[in-house]
């Protein structure tokens, strides 16, 4: 079977129309993983006893296992012991796994940004009589945000790609749609080419935005 451009262009819109599913999964998980990851980074930064050690083990577990296995472990594995997971809609389950997964990476990006602010500036703040809350909110965080934004954006691009796991639990995102189209037409080459182009195109746009963000972040304070 020859590659059919005609089929490619005819089917492209059918698959691309599922992009909102992919994007909303990404956005929702982005929100949760940023909040959760930042909280985890703060626990680490302040070396909260016990909790910091637990999160370290959790983070090692998340970063040391593939997202696909986490998805299966959660959706099919935990469902056998937890009614909560069993009754969860696939969309929610995927968002939960994506958020939990990415929060470990976000925590690392935020942690690195927080410790990038040198001790000297913190000592200067304290020596003037500032409270540690004032020091963190007025000196450390503004600088850490600048350092964290580019790697966090990178995390979000990874999250966008990770959303393709949703098809595994039967969600019709762009990946799910191309599976369904190709199963019906047997035109696997075209269908998977389409989905590749869609992901690639979106990632190019996101990377372009990231470059601009990076430039702006580097230019601040100069």
């Amino acid at each position: 079977m020859k590659f059919s451009w005609e089929y490619f262009f005819a089917t492209f819109p059918l698959i691309a129309e599922k992009l909102p599913v992919t994007l909303s999964l990404t956005l929702i998980s982005a929100g949760f993983s940023l909040a959760l990851g930042t909280a985890m980074a703060l626990v680490n930064y302040y070396r909260v006893p016990v909790l910091a050690q637990c999160l370290k083990a959790w983070s090692s577990f998340i970063r040391g296992t593939p997202a696909v296995t986490q998805m299966f472990f959660f959706y099919y594995g935990l469902a056998t012991v937890s009614a909560l997971v069993l009754n969860m809609s696939p969309l929610v389950a995927v968002a939960v796994v994506m958020s939990l997964n990415m929060s470990a990476f976000v925590a690392e990006s935020v942690r690195a940004a927080l410790i990038s602010v040198d001790e000297g500036q913190k000592e200067a703040a304290l020596s003037l009589g500032m409270s540690s809350f004032q020091m963190i909110t007025r000196i450390v965080i503004p600088q850490a945000v600048r350092v964290a934004l580019p790697p966090l954006f990178n995390d979000m691009i990874n999250l966008f790609k990770m959303s393709s796991l949703a098809f595994l639990v039967g969600i019709r995102d762009v990946m799910g749609a191309s599976r369904i189209e190709s199963a019906a037409s047997f035109r696997f080459f075209e269908c998977y080419a389409i989905v590749m182009v869609i992901y690639w195109g979106c990632t190019i746009v996101l990377t372009f935005l990231q470059r601009r963000l990076e430039k702006r972040c580097n230019a601040i304070y100069e």
Partner: peptide, 23 residues
């Protein structure tokens, strides 16, 4: 300080103002 330790996210003026405002 030996290594100045100015607040890098603040201008010269803001560095001097900081403790006046916060402390």
């Amino acid at each position: 300080f030996q290594s100045y330790n100015l607040f890098k996210n603040k201008t010269a003026k803001e560095n001097v103002m900081e403790a006046l405002v916060t402390v």
